[in-house]
Design a protein around this nucleic acid. Structure first.
Lengths: 231, 231
DNA sequence: ACAATAGTGTCTATCAGACACTATTTG
DNA sequence: CAAATAGTGTCTGATAGACACTATTGT
């Protein structure tokens, strides 16, 4: 086997959430070269024999102080000769989703860690560049991380209608209106209220009623739901 | 970089075609250990700085004597500690599609190379095991190659309705009936004739009429089409 | 009573699929 | 003319979306 070339494997994780009608992604400020000082996706090299998922959890812990426990899926991988002068480097990217309250509480005010707002100027699954803002200021993330974030949104939009992936962005209980708002933020377009409710409630087992009602709202309280058997 | 573990990267390619109402996949008989004598997907180790696609073309040339020129896309990637005693090995799989006449002519009667029939006992994109037959005899391919073939069919079925991928299985000119039969073989279910024609002809630019008619058929000859601008 | 949002019954426009028909070739 | 497949006009059933309405809370 020693006569074969060997690759070093790196990971990057796009941890996204939806809050306040916006999409957010977790970035950290790189403390070391290359690209020290720039905002980047958390990532580490994979250390044999750990799995990619384990490497991602390690990255979130080491780079952002986060004990992640939400949705995690492999997004893409690439390797290209000549991109890195240090040799043959491959990169696996992961998409992670978390509910905003948990995420904000977990990162707290940790220095060098931020939730960046992501503006998506394209509709549907067209693809294209995205705008990343930290504290209202447009930022160009390190390496090609902006493209990776864009790819994550494309994947998320593609799976939203056909899978239960959207529930990974919701707190333990939620109203149908809140669920619809989250879907609309991800998709970047308004959805028909009646159709949305029909589809969600007809997907048997996706969500189930808790029997509880919203509280502390100055209008008719909505019914609260939680993830169902198949959600 | 030397303090990081490094991975050897292998490729496997699933080259499929549709002919005689059946799905076929290219296999070769492994001349060396491990698993010498078993039928397997063509594959090689990736030699830096070549790309995965280049490695696949090399595999098809070296293992099957084939100068491949058709549709080629990346299918999946996996690596797992402890699976290979020789160390850290990753494997990228590719899906390749070719029109049957070209493929049969290219491989001719080359020894140790065969087109294996694939029977798919599951409907839609359910997934599950497939049955691989060489010369009418059920065969268990080397390693986990049967699973990789099953994954290819799942991908192919998933993309058939939404992309132009099905055209990669057609000769330069073809009738709408022949195209529909190919779709039906891949999907494993009959399609509505009128709906199929409507969808295909309304996808502007997918296919275009040649103005020619079928010849040497003992019934009304059908119009011949070719891939269009967007096909 | 009014504002605000939740939730629903019913109509309509769209479209995939079914049917029935015509068209064109060989034998 | 019969057989075989190509190709099409029209009806129908399912469903996404629009509209209009009722329901329930706080102020």
């Amino acid at each position: 086997m020693d006569d074969w070339d060997r690759m070093t494997l790196a990971t990057d994780v796009v941890l996204m959430t939806v809050a306040d009608g916006e999409l957010w992604v977790l970035l950290h400020r790189r403390p070391h070269d290359p690209q020290a000082g720039k905002w980047a996706l958390p990532g580490v090299f994979v250390a044999y024999p750990e799995s990619g998922e384990q490497a991602v959890l390690r990255a979130l812990r080491d780079k952002a102080g986060l004990a992640f426990d939400g949705h995690l899926e492999r997004l893409d991988w690439s390797w290209e000769a000549g991109r890195d002068p240090r040799g043959w480097v491959g990169c696996v990217t992961y998409l992670a989703l978390e509910e905003p309250a948990t995420l904000r509480a977990a990162i707290g005010g940790a220095p060098g860690v931020a939730l960046a707002r992501v503006a998506v100027p394209w509709a549907g699954e067209t693809g294209g560049p995205v705008i990343v803002e930290i504290s209202g200021r447009a930022t160009r993330p390190a390496f090609s991380h902006a493209e990776i974030i864009a790819a994550s949104i494309k994947r998320l939009r593609g799976k939203l209608r056909w899978t239960d992936i959207g529930l990974a962005l919701m707190p333990p209980t939620f109203t149908l209106s809140a669920l619809q708002r989250t879907y609309e933020v991800v998709l970047g377009e308004p959805l028909n209220r009646i159709t949305f409710r029909r589809l969600v409630r007809d997907s048997l087992g996706l969500i189930e009623p808790t029997g509880l009602l919203q509280e502390d709202v100055n209008h008719r309280p909505a019914e609260l739901f939680r993830r169902g058997r198949n959600g």
